[in-house]
Computed example of a mutant assay.
Amino acid sequence: MKLKNKLLLTGAATMAALFLGLNANAARMDMVDVSNNNGYMSTAEYVSMRNEFGVKALTVKISEGSTYKDPYAASNIANGQAAGLYVNGYHFARYATKTQAIAEADFAGQTAKTAGLPVGAVLATDVESQEANNQSQATNDRNNSAFMKEIQKFGYRADIYTSGSWANNKMTIKGKTGWIAAYPYVVSGKNWYSTNHAWQWSSTAKFRISYGGFDVSQLNSNYYTAGQKSMVKPTNKGAVKANNRKANKKNYQPSTNAKWVKETKTYTLNTAVKLRTGASTSSNAITILPAGTTIKTDRAIIQGGYRWVRQPRFNGYGYLATGPTSNTLEYVKSGATHTYYTVKSGDSWWTIAQRNGLSMTTLASQNGKSIYTTIYPGQQLVVR
């Protein structure tokens, strides 16, 4: 990321920091965002996030493009509200023209209404796709403006989510707007993007009773908590402080036995993947590679719980995870798409795994879960 120095709080940002009780030495886990990738999330999980980690707000994936509706949006909204969190939504943008942006906003707004997203919530446009990457900054600005203007017709407040490398490069992000993603190697001591609404500082945060990694953000204003009544506050302030300090620490320890091996291979990304400066989930993100991107690699290594590949670039190398160490290619499939199975009443991890020629551990892992996670009828699981 281009931003290297700690930002100073001035004006409205200072007031927002005072309002939120900013601790300049540690980024906070104010907001978590979830999607189908996280599977079914219970009210108990959201209550734990609130009480033990200080999560105030939840932002739920609603839709993507002009046809995809996130199957877990309704349950995430309902369960997040039941836990007393401020609930918002986001739409993964695929538009390349103003007409497409308006059509996607209409689709997202209608889908959000059906899923139960409350009026007054934020419904952000998540702009990181190949379609946006192919456009000029002026075109992206025009399209984003059209989306946000249209989404307000449904009673939602608008915002833009994008990566730090795209902000004011691929699109304009003005002060007092924007939700920006940037993942420093060591978080403590920085307050990045303090003049924007939110800074997403990790994509691998862990919560005590939830499986897998989560995207977490610090709120630098009250934009994502406005318009909805907060029913419950954290009950364990000591745990909140301790868990935030732990999340801020550099926790990646490279394996002393891991060695790079030669791998000349071409991958086609099945979903958006973060290209990093090193083979670690704690390494800075260079950019977000959109789904459909083709990359060529020259080395591979297994370390830190993931299988990593190295991509030669004009000014060095980029690194991305192709999946967990079991090499099930959870995040990347070479020229393939996922096959899903819909859970039926009476199903278990064992019966579904046996039916699809998998071990229970592999099945759970490629769905971002453990074999101890409860599954529910109607839930979709990746089986291929």
Rank of each mutant, 00 (worst) to 15 (best):
Lys2His: 12
Leu7Ile: 03
Ala13Pro: 03
Phe19Leu: 09
Met31Trp: 03
Ser35His: 04
Asn36Cys: 09
Asn37Pro: 00
Gly39His: 02
Met41Glu: 01
Thr43Gly: 02
Ala44Trp: 01
Glu45Thr: 13
Ser48Gly: 03
Asn51Gly: 06
Val55Gln: 12
Lys56His: 09
Thr59Asn: 11
Ile62His: 09
Gly65Lys: 14
Thr67Cys: 02
Pro71Asn: 12
Ala73Ile: 07
Ala74Gln: 07
Ser75Tyr: 05
Ala78Asp: 12
Ala83Arg: 11
Tyr86Thr: 08
Phe92Leu: 05
Phe92Pro: 10
Ala93His: 03
Glu104Met: 10
Phe107Gly: 04
Gly116Asp: 02
Val119Thr: 15
Leu123Glu: 02
Asp126Val: 09
Ala138Glu: 10
Arg142Trp: 00
Ser145Arg: 11
Glu150Ile: 10
Lys153Met: 05
Thr162Phe: 03
Ala167His: 06
Ala167Met: 08
Met171Phe: 10
Thr172Ser: 14
Thr172Gln: 05
Lys176Val: 00
Trp179Met: 02
Pro184Arg: 15
Lys190Ser: 11
Asn191His: 10
Trp192Cys: 02
Tyr193Cys: 04
Lys206His: 12
Phe214Glu: 08
Ser217Pro: 08
Gln218Ser: 14
Tyr224Gly: 06
Thr225Gly: 12
Gln228Asn: 08
Gln228Phe: 02
Val232Ala: 12
Lys237Cys: 06
Asn243Asp: 04
Lys249Glu: 13
Lys259Ile: 04
Thr264Tyr: 10
Thr271Met: 15
Leu275Glu: 15
Arg276Pro: 03
Gly292Asn: 05
Lys296Val: 15
Thr297Leu: 00
Arg310Cys: 00
Glu330Asn: 13
Tyr331Val: 03
Gly335His: 01
Ala353Asn: 12
Asn367Phe: 03
Lys369Asn: 07
Thr374Ala: 15
Pro377Lys: 12
Gln379Arg: 05
Gln379Cys: 00
